[in-house]
Amino acid sequence: MSDETITLYKHMKDLPSNRLLGTGTPMCAGCGGLLAIHQAYDILGEKTVFVNAAGCMTLLAVYPYTPFRGSWLYTSMASAPAGAQGVRDALDIQLARGRIKPEEDLQVVVLTGDGAAYGMGMSSTSSAIEHGLDFIYLCYDNEGYANTGQQSSPATPHGARTSTSTGPQGFGGHKKDLFAIWAAHRPAYVATVIATEPVDLARKIEKAKGLKGSRLIIALSPCPTGWDFDPRETVEIGRLAVKTGMWPLKEYENGKVTHTRVPPKRAPVEEYLEKQGRFAHLFHPRRNEAMLAEIQARVDDYWAGVEADHG
């Protein structure tokens, strides 16, 4: 992260302790998505309206219980950014006409999973960015349609077992590069984060909060249920995603991509893969060397490109 950035968050102990997101949500124990949302919410503050799409987090608010101290609107899987457009425009109209005071204004935050962000909602997201909509998009990416039992989604990594890719090769497709797709729209800000690197996450949310225009953030969200690991491992698995270079932490601003964490010596991807049941078939009953090498090669290629750009 560039040193000229002024931030409140240099160390974990600087992070806010307000815990705005209420307890008592029906998310799975150890949910990596909820972890990212509670961290982000503490920085965004109460003056937010979350506009939600169908996904795991639909169930954050089940009548009469909501964990939000601010507001929330549920729309549909495909159209949360359009809901954000409607809310933002209506707030602007009322601000312009003096019907609400500036201090009553809200930050509009779209909250969707990868199913919506990488797939069904892409059209409405593209439209919102093209309009220069002033909003934050927070995608909790658990790499599958987790709410319905982890079927493969456009964000599922190559080789992963899902409930719709149960064969020995796992999922045959490749995870879509949503960061690049979003960045190609040239919005105000795009970033990848993970809740297991909370300082990096906090600084990016802080930066996004300070900007105007479309600001889009993808949070890789380790999912004990869908990825098949013990819930206590959520943080460890998230750290390994970064250490192995599987989940690059980066941001896009003013036409430029910057990596905010470059693992000095990347751990082999299998350290990350072998901890998750969804990749167990790559190790048992025998190692699938070809697939492991292919996954490693893709990661190496990616970082070779990064080093070339920076070198």
Binding site: E46, Y65, T66, F68
Partner: peptide, 12 residues
């Protein structure tokens, strides 16, 4: 729901 953080009533 016209209130904030009512989910605290759910004893997870």
């Amino acid at each position: 729901i016209h209130a904030g953080a009512t989910s605290v009533e759910v004893r997870t």
